[in-house]
Amino acid sequence: MSRFILGQELPSHTFHINRALLVAYANASGDQNPIHQDEAFAKSVGLPDVIAHGMLTMALAGKYVADQAGGSTSVKEFSVRFTKPVVVPANTDVELIISGKVSEITEAGDAKIDITAVCAETKVLGMAKAIVANA
């Protein structure tokens, strides 16, 4: 029994990103770049405010894909372009809405999922796709 069929629209999921999550991701990943934590520093280098780590957005999209595919073990390939920053003002939960669509069943029988990631009505990832086991 296959999990995915060609053209299938996958249900969206909303993640919440705030400053505390950025600190948690910095500590778990080792990426302590101050543009993700220090508002004054971020503005000093021309950013509108603190921005999320691109890799945090990708990690959340990866969690979405893993959930859809039956777990992390099913994810074989995963790629994104970071097209727009996710701006995270103080004392705010920013919504990141992830959705997906099955765009191909590969010759090997895996499913290719095109991923959409939207924050403040703007797509923040481009060319985001994953190859997952279709079982």
Partner: peptide, 18 residues
């Protein structure tokens, strides 16, 4: 486990994709 906790993943027998 620490990396998984940040993104809300409770299955920690393997690392998450990223």
């Amino acid at each position: 486990s620490a990396f998984a906790a940040v993104i809300g993943e409770s299955e920690i027998s393997v690392a998450t994709p990223t």
